[in-house]
Design a protein around this nucleic acid. Structure first.
Lengths: 164, 164
DNA sequence: TTTATCGTGGATAATAATTATCCGCGATAC
DNA sequence: GTATCGCGGATAATTATTATCCACGATAAA
């Protein structure tokens, strides 16, 4: 039960895209700046694009930029884009296998009402989802703006703009 | 990002162990009753035992029983026992790789204060944890007692007691 | 118009996690 | 003594994650 590194990569990258408004940043730069694999990172951006979080600018001097305002991009959006939207807990309806049951004539208690364990696990995921939906990219950006020395933020900005 | 089937297996099994007080139920019966693999299920019970959720009775007519009161066994306890206690999000401190940094002399903002993304993801896990800690095995047992027809509950109980 | 750059999608593969089985050991009931 | 049962280790099949490479089309700049 672990999130893939794509979640970490994506969130860090998106943070750099906030400052880039109508322009765009290439995978090459994003990968180089953070010292991660370029080709692997591009796979996650394909997912972010498919989920409407970023949009791409094809061709030379192309790259990616946010597809919508950072206020509307939540941590959950990113998790869902990268990890897919399968629920954390997949219930195999093990209860319908109980040896004392007639498989061709299951009681309503085993088919109509939901599996309680399944329900609890889905609710647990919903708790996490709710929390992550409350944290936006804009919020993260503002927090970082406050916590990281402005000289470093400025240097980062200049690095990404160095060859535009 | 998925829970292993061990979580589902374990929770369902533990439910059957609530009624069994000083006695014990063997893996063989638990597996047969639910139509799952005996040898695989035994792996999860080894983890449940190591985490103090169940205790074992060795030898013939042996098996497992709860190691403590069902009021004190939470869904989270089971998830942690089966899945291990590694956090869902492992932060690789990607920020310390920023190309503009001097790796041998990192700024305090990148070492002293925690990575915000890491912090948010840990808090998200804590939300789920908190919820799952509020759901006990006793609660689940009582809910099932209310929702499942008593005739079925009785039949289940009798099946497990059929050869004691 | 050529050339270099960049996203895109597919193929491929290495590594790790999950799922699963089997066997021999020691403990215990009968 | 013998059959039963938990226990731990070895092993393997399957799937997911991590990762690379390449050919393609689109585009900017020369």
């Amino acid at each position: 039960m672990q999130f893939s590194v794509g979640v970490e990569y994506s969130l860090h990258c998106l943070l750099y895209l906030v400052d880039v408004n109508e322009r765009s940043v290439g995978i090459k730069d994003l990968a180089a700046y953070q010292g991660v694999s370029e080709s692997y990172l591009s796979k996650f951006f394909a997912k972010l694009k498919k989920n409407g979080i970023v949009e791409s600018v094809p061709g030379a001097k192309g790259g990616y930029r946010l597809a919508r305002a950072p206020e509307t991009i939540t941590f959950w959006d990113v998790v869902e884009a990268v990890e897919g939207s399968e629920p954390f807990f997949k219930c195999t309806e093990i209860r319908q296998n109980e040896i004392i049951l007639d498989r061709s004539n299951l009681p309503a208690s085993h088919t109509k009402s939901p599996c309680l364990i399944h329900k609890v696990m889905d609710e647990a995921e919903a708790q996490m989802k709710h929390f992550l939906q409350s944290k936006t990219l804009k919020w993260l950006y503002d927090e970082v703006q406050n916590k990281v020395p402005s000289v470093h933020i400025q240097a980062t900005k200049e690095w990404f703009e160095r060859n535009l």
